[in-house]
């Protein structure tokens, strides 16, 4: 794994954050998913998770977000264990998962404003974010009228409403068209230029120059749970 990083932060406006995992072990349903997994990420880094279906890409992203506790090992943000202060980690990390969390009876802008407020963002930020993902003209439309791709765009706009140094994207391009995929690529590039860190999994080729982390390399020799 090369330490060379072609997109060193040009204009670091985000707080310089490092993010690392040490010998992580994940157990799901009494079965070891991955073991002995370590990584180190510095400002501007991107990590792409590769692996078969069920190799633990989503689980690893949920571990990184703090939703799932690793059965062993430790996650470090700025050298301090994440588990010590989960709320601070919640402020620093944004997780985009399989589900888009768009409420059908709220408008697009209301959906996004709710998250913006919780993340400490502003309502102007909401409109800018919606323009960026190409939904500016749909701000007053209720969530139930959106297509799958549009819902995913709302979910991705959540990344932009308030700055956070760590983006954890679980197949962010699901249901997106080509234009939107290009938007995601440019969002990631800009985030890294700002000094942010991106970890993502994908099944399409994203034009992102990222270090690979192959989860198939971390399949535990013994799938059985610890005694």
């Amino acid at each position: 794994m090369s330490r060379k990083n072609p997109t060193r932060p040009i204009n670091p406006i985000l707080p310089a954050t490092t993010f690392a995992g040490r010998e992580l072990l994940c157990i799901r349903g009494e079965r070891r998913v991955f073991a002995d997994l370590s990584f180190d990420l510095e400002p501007g880094d991107a990590l792409v998770l590769l692996g078969r279906n069920g190799s633990g890409k989503s689980s690893l992203l949920r571990v990184m977000a703090g939703l799932l506790r690793p059965a062993a090992g430790v996650l470090l943000r700025d050298g301090k264990p994440v588990a010590d202060d989960p709320e601070a980690h919640g402020g620093a990390a944004r997780h985009v998962g399989h589900m888009d969390a768009v409420k059908p009876v709220l408008t697009v802008a209301e959906n996004l404003t709710f998250w913006a407020n919780l993340y400490g963002g502003s309502s102007e930020g909401v409109m800018i974010a919606l323009e960026r993902v190409g939904l500016g003209h749909l701000a007053t439309l209720p969530g139930k009228m959106l297509s799958a791709g549009q819902k995913r765009r709302v979910n991705l706009a959540r990344l932009l409403v308030a700055p956070a140094p760590l983006w954890l994207l679980d197949e962010p391009t699901t249901a997106l068209d080509k234009t939107a995929v290009a938007v995601v690529e440019s969002m990631i590039a800009q985030h890294r230029a700002n000094g942010g860190i991106v970890v993502f999994s994908t099944h399409v080729d994203l034009a992102v120059d990222a270090r690979p982390l192959v989860l198939d390399d971390h399949i535990p020799a013994n799938r059985e749970p610890l005694p």
């Binding site: 709320e87 601070a88 944004r94 997780h95 959540r158």
Partner: peptide, 15 residues
């Protein structure tokens, strides 16, 4: 829980 909002709520700076 079903639409994923609960995951996101658990990941906010608010306890």
């Amino acid at each position: 829980y079903e639409d994923g909002s609960l995951d996101l709520l658990a990941l906010t700076p608010t306890p």
